[in-house]
Amino acid sequence: MRALLIGVALAFIGLFLLLPLFVVFTEALRHGVLPYLAAIREPDAVSALLLSLKIVAIVVPINVTFGIFAAWTIAKFRFPGRSVLVSLIDLPFAVSPVISGLVYVLLLGSRGVLGPLLQDWDIQIIFALPGMVLATLFVTFPFVARELIALMEQQGNDEEYAARTLGAGGLQIFLRVTLPNIKWALLYGALLSAARALGEFGAVSVVSGHVRGYTNTLPLQVEILYNEYQFQAAFAVASLLALFALVTLVLKTVLEHRFGRELKTH
């Protein structure tokens, strides 16, 4: 019975996770290494990679900052509306990313509620980088906050109170007591939100406008190449995403190992 269960689990993982990964790399390298390198050096592919990295570089620090604020507020204080706030943080998980992208278009697009105002000021949000950052932020916000809330609630406030009676000021308490206690969870949350930001398709697709070489991220570029029957190039670009995913997986495992030990310390 046990062997059967393990067998089923392994077969499932093999079929649905490992096989696709294998296919991505074999298809990418179908015509050899040189066409593969050519496909990922192609200017549109490079610009898509850079844009994706740029979005990650903007989104992750914002998520970290606001994630800390949100988690601190929710975990350390009791106030009216607290449970509503907790539910709101989970909202992006419940809403389809396409919908969230669409909301931004309806709100900020040229025919949107705030569109005319933005046009008067000559600010382009939809079909440009700011819109893509906003859409990605919406989708990735919960990762850091959720990681931190659980940990901070479990740790309680006593250490901060102790630091206060020992004469520490607010900033000292945060830097010397709170931050070291949450640093691994913070890194873990940041990693998850980076991975999600890199791979996000739906929300970004709606707000990007697919301007080749300008507003295409890696996943969007894969889609375009695939739709143009450039299968080998599509898989080559997809292999980049797969590589990032593998690196994330390794880092996540290392962190979980480390993070688990930190959590034991109470």
């Binding site: 006593d158 250490e159 109170y161 102790a162 630091a163 009676t165 206690n181 310390t265 109470h266």
Partner: peptide, 13 residues
């Protein structure tokens, strides 16, 4: 003031 907590509240790290 010196304050001692029931659950010690030592800085774990």
């Amino acid at each position: 003031v010196g304050f001692v907590f029931q659950h010690y509240a030592l800085f774990r790290h």
